Amino acid sequence: MTSCDTCVVRNRAICSALDSGEITALSRMGRRRRLKASEPLIWEGDDSVLVANVIEGVLKLSTSTEDGREQIVGVVYPSDFIGRPFGATTRHSVTALTDAYVCVFSRGDFDGFAHQHPGLEHKLLQRTLAELDRTRHWMLLLGRKSASEKIASFLLDMSERLNEPGCEAPSGMRDAFDLPFSRQQVADVLGLTIETVSRQFTQLRREGIVDLPSRRAVVIRDRAALEALAG
């Protein structure tokens, strides 16, 4: 593996709880893997055999409904942890939305290492609680906000997460980014129809709040107005 000291998410990932000697020991257990967009890493219902840290790129967490439709239930970004440590099976599939770079560990090896290093277990607990907070926030977004509020909140969240180390904005500006989602995926994530999503994007552009240079590119022109719209 490449030295963890040069990792762009070293100070934000769960391994930030470890000292240099512990990092070296953990790195010997893992390997780095590149994923192409749309390439799966974990399949829903499979045995939980691996966990990973995201170094670069964006991945989706999804599950299948009884009639075979895909439902996106989460998105992971650089420094996020994926997989199910201390678990028997995986509850959702993990698939790259963009080209991605991940640090992969055998789940059994990682579990054993975590048991021996309380700092890492504590970091995992913090991540779990943060994920719970995000889930509660998402429930509010889906259950109580209007379509315009959902789209505004979604774009603000994307602008923050896609401009962290490992996710470079196309122009290097915080308010410019490329969405890793298609319009249909945005609709699925937010519980809207694709027609509603398209109308909301068109309205935001018409009002000068955002610019849409291409199908995926977004430039926030008036952040204050977008924040007000998000409630």
Rank of each mutant, 00 (worst) to 15 (best):
H115Q: 10
K150R: 13
S159P: 05
A176S: 11
Q200L: 06
V102M: 06
D80T: 01
D5R: 13
M158S: 11
N11W: 01
T24M: 13
G119C: 08
T95E: 15
E70K: 05
A88V: 09
E160C: 04
F201M: 15
V186L: 03
T24N: 15
L190S: 02
I82Y: 04
V76L: 10
G112D: 03
V94M: 02
D109W: 00
A230C: 07
R216Y: 04
P85Q: 03
G143E: 12
T193M: 08
A88T: 12
L192T: 09
A224N: 12
R28E: 11
R12S: 12
T128L: 15
Q71T: 02
L192W: 06
C15E: 12
V9L: 03
R161Y: 01
D211G: 13
V73K: 02
T95Q: 13
L179C: 08
R216D: 07
E121C: 09
H92E: 14
L97H: 08
M29T: 09
K145H: 15
R127K: 12
M173Y: 10
T196W: 06
S146K: 14
K123A: 13
A100P: 08
V219N: 04
A96C: 10
K145V: 09
L192H: 01
R84T: 01
V219Y: 02
L229A: 13
D19I: 08
L18M: 12
A52Q: 03
M173C: 09
E70R: 04
S198P: 01
I220P: 09
E227A: 14
G231Y: 00
E121K: 02
I23Y: 03
R31T: 09
T196R: 11
K145E: 15
T193H: 11
E56S: 15
P85L: 03
L140F: 02
E70V: 00
T6C: 06
V75H: 01
A147H: 10
T89S: 14
D175R: 08
D5K: 13
M139A: 08
S153Q: 13
S16W: 03
F181D: 02
L212Y: 12
E22V: 00
F181V: 09
T90P: 04
P180V: 02
A37D: 07
E160K: 03
R221K: 15
K150N: 08
